[in-house]
Simulated scan of single mutants.
Amino acid sequence: MLRRLALTAVVSLAVLSAAAPGAAAASGPLTPPTPLPLPLPLLLPLPQGDDDTRTRLTVTVSDTGAPSAEGTFTLECDPVGGSHPAAGRACDRLAELADAGADPFAPVPRGTMCTLQFGGPATARVTGTWQGRHLDAVFSRADGCEISRWNNLRPVLPGVR
């Protein structure tokens, strides 16, 4: 039994040793393997603003008491553009909030104690892309927490009377 096992191992080793040079001879004696071509996007310069991470927002504001601040505006950052009346300052504020790790579009957490002050009937809705994520946020001035959220996002959201 031990002889049979040893003989099988020797024969297997001999077969494998004979097959390896044949495989190498098929590609040439000292020919290095052909390198794989690089994918084309790696050869191109990277774009300045990726569509998934660029800021592209639509801001709809109503009932502020300042007709010039009401309406629907677009805001784009990197590069700055759109119909927002303070696009440059708004993009700067969004960059500042991102650098601080803040999420100005997050709703007020449930159970938060807020002052019962009314900041007026102004409302805003912000939709689009910011920091690579899609968002749909609603703002009001219904209580102290909502007023604070609104003010934190100035000048993306306008001042109110």
Rank of each mutant, 00 (worst) to 15 (best):
V15S: 12
V15I: 15
A95W: 09
G111A: 08
G65S: 10
P37H: 12
T72V: 07
T58W: 14
G119H: 08
T72I: 03
W130L: 11
L57V: 05
F139Y: 13
C114V: 01
D78E: 11
S140Q: 11
E76W: 09
S27D: 13
S148H: 01
G119Q: 10
R54S: 10
V126C: 02
P107Q: 05
A98H: 04
I147A: 05
V156F: 06
A23L: 15
D52T: 09
A122I: 03
S12M: 03
A100M: 07
V59G: 04
L42P: 06
P107F: 03
S68Y: 10
E146K: 03
V61R: 01
R154L: 15
P41Y: 11
S68T: 14
L97S: 00
D63I: 02
P37C: 13
D63S: 09
D136V: 10
G81K: 02
S27N: 12
T60K: 14
R110I: 03
P155R: 07
A122V: 09
D52L: 13
G119L: 11
T74C: 11
F73E: 00
T34V: 15
P21G: 15
L40H: 10
S17E: 13
P104W: 00
M113N: 05
D143A: 08
T31F: 12
R141C: 05
P29D: 11
C114G: 15
A142H: 12
A18N: 08
S62L: 07
A124M: 00
D99V: 03
F105I: 13
C145L: 06
P155W: 05
P37T: 04
F105G: 02
G119W: 11
R125G: 04
P45A: 10
R3F: 12
T112M: 02
G111D: 08
N151G: 01
L16A: 15
P155V: 05
P32G: 13
G120P: 04
V160N: 01
R3W: 10
L116D: 06
G128L: 03
A137Y: 06
C91F: 06
C91H: 03
P109L: 09
T129K: 04
D92A: 14
T129I: 13
S83T: 14
A20W: 15
G28A: 14
L2A: 13
T34Q: 07
R133T: 14
H84V: 04
P37I: 05
P33M: 12
A26E: 11
A14L: 12
L75R: 00
D136G: 02
P158A: 00
T53S: 10
T8I: 15
V126S: 00
G144K: 04
C145H: 01
L30S: 15
A14I: 10
R154H: 09
F118K: 02
V80R: 08
V15Q: 00
M1P: 12
S27V: 12
P39V: 01
R4I: 15
R154C: 06
T55R: 11
F118A: 06
R56V: 12
P39W: 05
V108H: 07
P37A: 10
R125D: 00
L7P: 08
F118C: 01
N151V: 02
V80W: 08
